[in-house]
Amino acid sequence: MSGLRLEGVANAVLAPLDLTVRPGEAVAVLGPSGAGKSTLLKIVAGLLPHRGRVLLGGGELTGLPPHRRGIGYMSQDLHLFPHLSVANNLHLPLVFRGLDRAARAARVAETLALCAIDHRASRRPASLSGGERQRAALARALVCRPRLLLLDEPFANLDHATRGALWREVDALRRRLGITALIVTHDPAEAAALADRSVRIADGTLTERTAPSCSPSMTTPCCAC
């Protein structure tokens, strides 16, 4: 398990900020729209230039291109590749990683089952329901067993019941795989369901650090309850 450390990370949107996520811990980044939450995730993923340092498991990520960071990233718009089946969406990162065909097939089957989307393996993303697409995108983000998982408003487009079910499953799955996670959301209930603690960003500044708050709509108990 790898911990994440941000030291003086900043760009045109974000004021310099420090943040530490312990190995295996999930931290939610809360804040209003336009506060810089997604910018922070893109910086960690290597998609935006920035000042300061990003360290993962003690190793320097700063300056590394995104494909060499060993990070899983799932955004709100998912971007499953429409020309590939669900299974082939998962095969692709393993091909880039250089796994042979047998190892790829085993890993894809295992990950599809973990995310309960194995029954849709041969379908194209366009034919899936909203919840199934979220599961497929999550499976793709996890298939390389990343050291760090970045979730950007992962379940924003789903109805309340489906979101609640997915929160429970994702939280259990992340803990089972021991993956460190940084989760962007504007929903305190989602932060409480998915994260061990939360921080808040407003106007590009990390203003507060809190334990996840309880909410009537929470679907899993949090540590403070």
């Binding site: 993923a45 998609l47 291109p65 494909h67 971007h79 390389c144």
Partner: peptide, 15 residues
């Protein structure tokens, strides 16, 4: 976005 997503999935720019 598709190119960014591919990069986070370990694809080099050429891949």
């Amino acid at each position: 976005r598709p190119m960014e997503v591919a990069a986070t999935l370990r694809a080099s720019p050429l891949d």
